[in-house]
Amino acid sequence: MQVVCLQEDAFYTLFDKVVEHIDAKRKEAPAKWIDGKEAMGILKISSKTTLQKLRDEGKIRFSQPQKKIILYDRGSINAYIEQHAHETF
């Protein structure tokens, strides 16, 4: 077994760099499943009823792991937006 000794300042500097690295990696890959608030933000809607309508009509994918928890598939929301995009002239 090897033991590595670091001075306190060096340890905290290393620790900060590890945290920065993890944060950067997490920001690179957004979560696949998002909550209703984030889904509404991406869709630029303010009504939970509109979000439910999209879900009920099968226009966006969702998962309901518990009775009061509904998660939305970010990819299906982006696909829905792309489906309604109009090409330029």
Rank of each mutant, 00 (worst) to 15 (best):
W33L: 15
E28L: 13
A79V: 08
H86I: 11
Y80G: 09
T49P: 02
V19E: 09
Q2C: 00
H86K: 12
Q2E: 02
T49D: 12
K59C: 01
K59Q: 14
E28M: 13
I70H: 09
C5Y: 08
L51F: 05
Y72N: 04
D23A: 05
A79G: 10
F62K: 04
Y72W: 05
A29M: 07
V18L: 09
R26K: 15
Y12P: 04
E8A: 05
L71Q: 12
A79P: 08
G36L: 07
L6E: 09
Q66N: 09
Q66R: 12
L14Y: 03
H86C: 06
D73M: 11
T88E: 09
H84M: 03
K53Q: 13
K25D: 12
K27T: 11
D73H: 11
S76Q: 08
A85C: 10
V18I: 14
Y12R: 07
N78K: 01
K37W: 13
D9V: 02
K37T: 15
W33T: 12
T13Q: 06
Q83K: 14
A39H: 10
L43Q: 01
K37R: 15
F11M: 12
E20D: 15
R61T: 05
A31L: 15
E8Y: 11
V3R: 00
F89L: 08
K67W: 01
W33S: 06
R55A: 01
R55V: 05
D9W: 00
T13R: 12
S47C: 04
K68C: 00
K37P: 13
A85Y: 09
Q7T: 03
L54T: 08
Q66F: 10
I45W: 00
E38F: 13
K48M: 02
K53D: 05
K68I: 00
K17R: 06
H84W: 10
C5R: 10
D16Q: 10
L71H: 05
F62Q: 03
T49L: 07
I60S: 00
I81T: 06
V4R: 01
G41V: 06
E82I: 03
A79Q: 14
D73V: 00
D35Q: 14
K44G: 03
G41C: 10
M1H: 04
T49G: 08
I60E: 04
R74D: 05
G41I: 10
E57M: 05
H21Y: 14
G41P: 09
A39E: 08
I70W: 11
L43R: 02
E57D: 11
H84V: 06
W33E: 14
Q83D: 13
E28H: 07
K44W: 08
E20S: 13
P65V: 00
I70V: 15
D56K: 14
Q83G: 15
I42D: 08
C5Q: 00
K37S: 14
L54H: 02
Q52K: 10
E82K: 14
V4N: 03
T13Y: 01
E8H: 09
K32N: 10
D56T: 12
R55M: 14
